[in-house]
Amino acid sequence: MSVVDQINRFARRVPSWALYILYLLPVPYLLYLAQTGGLGREPIKALEHELGEIALQLLIISLTITPLRRYLGLNLLKFRRAFGLLAFIYVTLHLLVWLVLDVGIPSQIWADIVKRPYITIGMGAFVLLLPLAVTSNNYAVRRLGAGWRKLHRLAYVVVILGGVHYIMLTKTWALEPMVYMAVILGLLLLRLPKARSKQAA
């Protein structure tokens, strides 16, 4: 039995709720670190950045499911919803830390959303994620039919906005956000019709 088959067999046995538990564990751990000095002398920004980075990673993971199946035969489709929803949860937590702990001043929050392009972009990504989170249940999938797939292509826009948001907030051209962006663009390129037809031929 090949490695791929073994992973597929293992994946069939793992319930997707296990993923929620596993991926939500960092939240209490980060809060504990923030309270005990484990996130450094300024825990607010550190917590905000950690949550944002995990959110971006989860969005990226949700984009790998389809290419992994198409190109390697790995079937992790049953986990895609969990990764998407977890990404939404982390984006929400990231936003809450920014709203409540970081800025905390209502007038400045609105001014920042309107005036600061990287915050506008981040907010845009969050707003676009809302309909995706709301329709991430079986009922909505049935109800929307073909429209559901179309709607959920918004995830491509969201992940690009997330990557741009990360690049824009660093003071210099840092390596990490660039690596994220490269991975995002790579995963999206795999979805272009040309790349797909090449694979078919």
């Binding site: 300024e42 607010i44 702990l101 905390g104 001014a111 920042d112 005036k115 600061r116």
Partner: peptide, 22 residues
Amino acid sequence: VDHPRWSQATERKIGGGLFSKR
């Protein structure tokens, strides 16, 4: 005079922990 990417009207004093206000 704001930085183009963020406001300079307020600041956070380091060392106030998780609930430090600007």
